[in-house]
Design a protein around this nucleic acid. Structure first.
Length: 202
DNA sequence: GCCAACGTTGGC
DNA sequence: GCCAACGTTGGC
């Protein structure tokens, strides 16, 4: 039987409706849970990695989207939700990772193009990502807009990431890690970019 | 609050 | 297609 709601998060892009280009949302939208608690200690921009199955929504599709931007809707995992809602902010930098793909790995760079706001698909009747238990007055699921910045010069594959000791701490590489939205350190970020500019080891 | 059953993720 | 790891549900 079908679950009453999606059990867990997958950064799937809905195949239907929500492909409407999210308006370039300004910060007018929902300054709600912004990180006033973070204080000055956290350097901006923060860096993140998002996963997407290219059969659902590839980086190429993001590049081709109006304004190269889309709502990152459909995340239905609480930890990822918290990151989206509480920690991501306009201007943050994002690696775009293709999972369940012919070539698995980091393929591009995107930026966070809005602050967080409630994922509208949770309230859409009949939508795959509808959550009937979510209260509009206190939305359960949040998202940000993502804008493609550029494809990497080449894909940095999962195998390469695993083989690089400097990246052993990446959340992506932790045993059993399934988070579809996850933090990346500045060091990890720089290392992946370096790899992308270098020919893969043969 | 425990925990078994179930569904999902995602590499292989 | 397989299946290990994980997250959620719901009976108790």
């Amino acid at each position: 039987m079908p679950p009453r709601k999606p059990a867990s998060a997958k950064s799937v892009r809905p195949k239907s409706a929500a492909r409407t280009p999210s308006r370039p949302s300004r910060d007018v939208l929902i300054p709600l849970a912004k990180r006033t608690d973070a204080g000055p200690a956290v350097p901006r921009p923060n860096k993140w990695l998002v996963k997407s199955e290219p059969s659902e929504f590839s980086f190429e599709q993001l590049l081709a989207a109006p304004q190269r931007t889309t709502m990152w809707d459909g995340v239905r995992n609480y930890q990822a939700r918290n990151t989206l809602r509480d920690s991501m902010a306009v201007g943050d930098e994002v690696f775009y990772y293709h999972s369940n793909a012919e070539v698995i790995g980091i393929v591009g760079v995107a930026r966070v193009a809005s602050n967080s706001y409630p994922d509208p698909t949770q309230f859409e009747r009949g939508h795959v990502h509808e959550d009937p238990d979510s209260d509009p007055a206190n939305p359960r699921w949040w998202l940000v807009d993502l804008q493609a910045v550029r494809a990497l010069p080449r894909v940095v594959t999962l195998d390469e990431l695993k083989a690089n000791p400097a990246l052993s701490g990446m959340v992506l590489l932790q045993r059993g890690s399934r988070l579809s939205v996850q933090p990346v350190s500045s060091e990890q970020w720089a290392e992946v970019l370096r790899m992308a500019q270098t020919a893969p080891r043969s």
